[in-house]
């Protein structure tokens, strides 16, 4: 049933956020530490485990796949509720700090990625719900 997939996704999400909160409390930070990242790793483990035992039929996968495919529309909705007015009102300090940080980080990313190992391996491109366009 399709809800099994969505339920597994929800369980991993909640457990990950819970662990992230615990981790934050443990190291004394007033924030969730990597909860979503932990949830992602849990979901990856669950997928690998269930696949090996043959407990992951296509309909169950569709219960996760739908939400993965909804990702871009959700991001568009997220963009539509950013506080753009406040960002533009920040003045020169905010603007120059942000531009400087973005430029320097982009340069560092380019430096790391261009010096890294070049691989022609393209297996990652065949995702389960990869967009066709």
């Amino acid at each position: 049933m399709i809800i099994y997939g969505t339920a597994i996704l929800a369980a991993c999400h909640l457990l990950g956020v819970y662990i992230g909160d615990l981790l934050g409390a443990f190291i004394g930070v007033k924030a969730n530490v990597g909860g979503v990242g932990i949830a992602m790793m849990l979901l990856i483990s669950a997928r690998v485990y269930l696949h090996k035992r043959g407990l992951m039929p296509d309909t169950t996968e569709a219960g996760v796949g739908f939400w993965a495919a909804m990702y871009i529309p959700v991001v568009v909705a997220m963009a539509a509720q950013q506080n753009v007015v406040a960002a533009l009102k920040g003045g020169p300090v905010a603007l120059i700090s942000a531009i400087g940080a973005v430029l320097l980080c982009a340069g560092t990313i380019a430096l790391i990625n261009r010096t890294g190992p070049k691989r022609q391996d393209t297996t990652w491109q065949t995702g389960t719900v990869a967009e066709e366009s």
């Binding site: 992602m40 990856i44 990702y71 909705a77 997220m78 995702g127 719900v129």
Partner: peptide, 19 residues
């Protein structure tokens, strides 16, 4: 739809495709 809850839910779902 674009709040933190749905955003994180959809992000976690994309992990399904991670190699």
């Amino acid at each position: 739809m674009g709040g933190a809850m749905m955003r994180d839910f959809a992000i976690v779902a994309t992990a399904f495709e991670v190699q």
